[in-house]
Write a protein that binds this DNA or RNA. Structure first.
Lengths: 339, 339
DNA sequence: TATTAACACGAAACCGTTTTCGTGATATTT
DNA sequence: AAATATCACGAAAACGGTTTCGTGTTAATA
C-alpha cells in the first residue's frame, strides 16, 4: 500500500520548498526549466495528484453538485439524474445524490447535510410531503446563504430560484385533444391529489381541452388517487362504474394497470378504449399494447438543470435574476390509441 | 444573503480565541460553564454549522462514498443505489454517483476523479467493456492506495476486495429446474455474451439443470446476444426456428419482448410456452401476463455493500481480509408460468 | 508564606493546497 | 563601479476546522 504523495513529500525529497513544487507543477514562469522538469518528472513517477479536499477548502468550490429527489426507483427521475450526471461530469463536476423518499424531514436533513460546504449548488425536485405542507424554509435558508438552487419538475413559486419544468398542462391538453379528435366521448382522467404541482397542471390541461370542446367536464370522470402509490381497487371500481372510452393517466403505472383491467373484461385497446399516460419509460414501451405517452424528456431536463446551475455557480456576477425554462412535452404515439 | 459564519467570526465577536470556541461547542470540560453557554447561545443564534470540507481535510475522512455503475436507467442498479443511499445516509455518509455507461475509459476517469480525496471508498459494478477487456489496473491502483472497494454484481476475481453477488448460477438453475419439473421439454435460454460475469453464471446454472435432467443440452436452444441492447430481429428468428416451450431470459426486457412476440403468433402463455426472467422490476410486475422472475434483491445488495464498505472504512485495523457475500436469489412466481 | 494543584483559556501546529510578497544572487544598464 | 533589473526561489498567510501543549490566575495545601 503506497499512500498518496503530497506536495510536501515532493518538496522534502527534492530539497525545494512547497511553493516551488506547486508552481513547478503549474508550469509557472517563475520557476526555471531545470527545476520544473525535475519536479514534474518526480511527480509523474510517483503519480502525484492534488488533493481535492485541500483545493476545495482553498477555493471554496467543491465541484460537487447536490441532487435531491423524492425517489430514484422511478424512470423519470432516473433519466433526469443521467442527464445531470452526463452534463456535470463533462464540466468536471460530481453528483451527490440524496433521496428524500417523499419525506419532508429527509429532504431537510439531506439539504442541511450538504449545505455546509459539501456542494456548490442544488438541483432538486420537491417531495410530495413538502408540496403538501407547502413549507419551503429549508430552501430559502439555502438560497439566503448564496447557494444556487435549480428546481425541476416538482417546483414551487414560493422560492426564488431557477426552475425547469415541462409544460405539463400543454401535454395533458394535447393528449386530451387527441382523444377528442379521435371521436372519444367519455374521456376519463386518473390523477393524484392536487398538491403535487405536476398533477395539478396536468388536470388543468385536461380540463381546458374538454371545456374548449363540446363535451364539457364530467367531474365523475376524474379519479384522484391519494398518492402516487397504486390503489388497485379504486381504479377497478372507477373504470367499471364510469365505462370511459379513453383514459388519460398521470403516470405509466396507472395506465398499464388500467389497460390490463379492461383487457380482462374483454375490451379491445384501442378500439373500445384508448389510453395515454405520462412518462416515456420502459413500461410504456414494452406494455401490451404499447402505451402512448406524453414524454417528459427527463434527460434533457437534467442537462438543462445542470447547465443552469453550473453557469450560476461559475458566474462571478451576483445578479439576482432567475429564469424558468419550460420544455415542450411530446406525444409518443404507440398502440394504445388509434393511429 | 447572509454568508456562513465561522469559528473565527464567533471568536472575534465574543473576544475569545478560536480554540475556546471550538472547545465550547464540543462541550469540553476545559471551558467554564459561563463561556460555554455564551458561545453556544451565539452559535445557535447565528446558526453556526462547521464546514464539512475543513473537517474532511483535518480528519482525512470525507464521509462520502463513491458509487460507480454502468447505467442508472436500469431497475436493478437503481434499487441497489437506493439500498446504498438509505444505509449510507443512516450512518452519516453521502453518496456520489458516477456512471460509466458501460465504458472502460469513463470508469477509469470517474474513479481517478474521486480517488483524490473526494471519497472514503468505492462501491462499484464493472462496466461491460471493463469485463470484456479484463483490465483492472484502475481498481488495483485504488486498492493499493488503501482505498476500500466493494464490488457488487458484476465482479472479477482478479481484484482483491470485498464482493457482493447473488448466486446467479443458483437462480438460473432453479428457474430451469422449475421448467423441467413442469414437464417442459424445449427449454431455451436468451442471454448475452459470456464476458458479463452475471450472464456467464446464469448460463452455467441453466446448463447444470439440464445436464442433471434427462433432457440434456441443445446448443441451438441458447441465444447469445452481443450486448445488453435489444436486438429484436434475432430474438424473433430464434423463437421462430427453435419453437421452445419455455424460455429463460437473463433480464426482463428480453423476456417481455419475447412474450409479446409469441403472443402475436397466437401462442398462449403459460400453456404453450412459459417464461422466466431475471430482475424483479416494474416491467415484470406490470407485463401481460406478469412475468415470473429470479429476484436479485438489489436494495438488499446495496445495503450489504454499503455496510461492508463503511465497516471497512471505519475499522482502524489494517486487516487485509476480504470476503465475498453471496445473496440468495428468489423465484417470484407470476403468471408467465403455470402455478 | 511558599508550593502545588486546579482551572480556564490561548498559541500554535496541522491537514494539503494556492498565492502574494520578499529576497539573495546574478545579469544588465549607466 | 554603482545602480538597477531580472531571475529563481522561499516564507508565510490563507481556507476552517481540531487538538496538543503551555501559561497565567486563583485556590488549596504544606
Amino acid at each position: 500500500m503506497k499512500a498518496k504523495i503530497t506536495l510536501k513529500d515532493i518538496a522534502r525529497e527534492l530539497e525545494v520548498s512547497i511553493s516551488t513544487v506547486s508552481k513547478a507543477l503549474k508550469n509557472s514562469e517563475e520557476i526555471s526549466r531545470d527545476t520544473k522538469e525535475k519536479v514534474q518528472a518526480f511527480a509523474k513517477l510517483y503519480n502525484y495528484k492534488p488533493n481535492n479536499i485541500a483545493i476545495s477548502l482553498k477555493n471554496k468550490r467543491t465541484k460537487n453538485i447536490g441532487v435531491v429527489i423524492p425517489d430514484i426507483v422511478h424512470h423519470f427521475f432516473t433519466t433526469v439524474i443521467r442527464g445531470i450526471e452526463k452534463y456535470a461530469n463533462a464540466r468536471g463536476y460530481n453528483v451527490i445524490v440524496c433521496l428524500s423518499e417523499e419525506s419532508f424531514d429527509k429532504e431537510v436533513i439531506n439539504m442541511e447535510m450538504l449545505a455546509n460546504g459539501s456542494i456548490d449548488g442544488f438541483i432538486m425536485s420537491l417531495s410530495s410531503e413538502t408540496q403538501q405542507k407547502a413549507d419551503y424554509n429549508h430552501l430559502k435558508e439555502v438560497t439566503d446563504q448564496g447557494i444556487p438552487v435549480v428546481l425541476f419538475d416538482r417546483i414551487t413559486n414560493e422560492v426564488e430560484c431557477d426552475k425547469v419544468i415541462i409544460d405539463d398542462e400543454l401535454g395533458a391538453y394535447e393528449a386530451t385533444k387527441k382523444f377528442i379528435d379521435q371521436g372519444k366521448k367519455r374521456i376519463a382522467l386518473i390523477t393524484t391529489d392536487d398538491y403535487l404541482s405536476v398533477s395539478k397542471a396536468r388536470t388543468k390541461g385536461y380540463r381546458r381541452a374538454l371545456e374548449e370542446s363540446s363535451l364539457g367536464i364530467d367531474e365523475s370522470m376524474i379519479l384522484k388517487m391519494p398518492s402516487m402509490e397504486m390503489d388497485e381497487g379504486s381504479i377497478k371500481t372507477f373504470l367499471n362504474t364510469n365505462e370511459p372510452d379513453a383514459v388519460l393517466c398521470v403516470n405509466e403505472i396507472f395506465a398499464v394497470y388500467s389497460m390490463r383491467l379492461v383487457q380482462e373484461k374483454g375490451l379491445k385497446i384501442p378500439e373500445d378504449i384508448s389510453f395515454i399516460g405520462f412518462t416515456d419509460g420502459v413500461l410504456s414501451k414494452y406494455a401490451n399494447p404499447s402505451l402512448t405517452v406524453v414524454a417528459q424528456h427527463g434527460e434533457k431536463m437534467g442537462e438543462v438543470s445542470a447547465k443552469m446551475l453550473i453557469d450560476k455557480v461559475e458566474s462571478e456576477a451576483e445578479e439576482e435574476t432567475y429564469q424558468t425554462k419550460i420544455l415542450e412535452p411530446t406525444l409518443v404515439i404507440r398502440d394504445s390509441i388509434a393511429h
